[in-house]
Design a protein around this nucleic acid. Structure first.
Length: 240
DNA sequence: AATTCTCGCAACCGCTCACAT
DNA sequence: AATGTGAGCGGTTGCGAGAAT
């Protein structure tokens, strides 16, 4: 808990809003959550033969859940993972936990390494230049966090995503900008920050065009957003 | 001082993609 | 072409901690 404590209590938290979504979904079908929950439970337990769940409708678990720890990682677990990867390198996350002596899912190990333990991770607050770059890249790329984090050395997609959801989104809203499309929201207060104006597209122009705007330079930013295209393939790195 | 509220972040979940067979 | 498997991604959740009451 380090920054922006004063911003608290400004609006319902995002997680709270997402939790409300369940109620919203239920309301679409004119069920209250209280009615909807037992309804879906009884359906899932009794309405289908056992073999049904072995077919394509149900994913196989990625690992044996009974044998895996969940939740926060301990220092011992971290050290085991670090030691193993330093010795054997990254790769084959599915078999890594067993080989490293960890009672964790392979996905969990991968995430822990990539988001926290990797030596080149930059921990700590985001700088102003990083903030500006994230906003500009988001205008250009949308919620493609891995692509965005790829332009921010030492930052992970998870960290960028969290920072966007907890800080930047709110910052844009306060500035009267719709964070989804980076356009000026007429129903919200006018811009207070002149720099923010560079993030708003004029009517009819797309998000990328605003990135070319000279006004960005007036804010002291000189951010090269040209994307290096690997020679054999004209596709963005990590693009799907 | 105790309780409640709110936030931030680490971690999880489920989906999609890429590749091998 | 169809299927299976591993890896990666983005959305969501749970929990600890600080602020407010």
């Amino acid at each position: 808990m380090s920054t922006n404590q004063s911003q608290r209590k400004s609006s319902p938290s995002q997680s709270h809003r997402s939790r409300l979504y369940l109620g919203y979904l239920c309301s679409i079908f004119t069920f209250s959550p209280q009615i909807c929950a037992p309804f879906s439970l009884s359906l899932s337990l009794s309405a289908f033969p056992l073999g049904f769940w072995n077919s394509t409708t149900m994913r196989k678990p990625c690992c044996d859940k009974q044998d895996t720890n969940k939740g926060a990682w301990t220092k011992q677990e971290d050290q085991k993972l670090i030691d193993y990867i330093q010795t054997h390198g990254e790769g084959c996350w599915r078999t890594l936990p067993k080989a490293a002596g960890l009672h964790r899912c392979g996905k969990s190990c991968r995430l822990r390494w990539i988001n926290y333990l990797r030596p080149d991770i930059k921990h700590g607050n985001f700088g102003q230049d990083e903030e500006d770059l994230i906003i500009k890249l988001h205008a250009l790329l949308g919620n493609r966090w891995s692509l965005i984090s790829g332009r921010l050395p030492g930052r992970t997609d998870n960290e960028v995503k969290n920072y966007w959801n907890t800080h930047l989104k709110r910052k844009l809203i306060r500035a009267g900008i719709d964070p989804d499309n980076h356009r000026l929201n007429q129903t919200l207060p006018r811009l207070q920050n002149q720099c923010m104006s560079t993030l708003v597209t004029s009517s009819g122009s797309d998000a990328a065009s605003c990135l070319e705007d000279d006004t960005s330079r007036s804010c002291g930013l000189s951010l090269d957003l040209s994307i290096a295209i690997p020679s054999p393939s004209p596709v963005l790195e990590g693009e799907k």
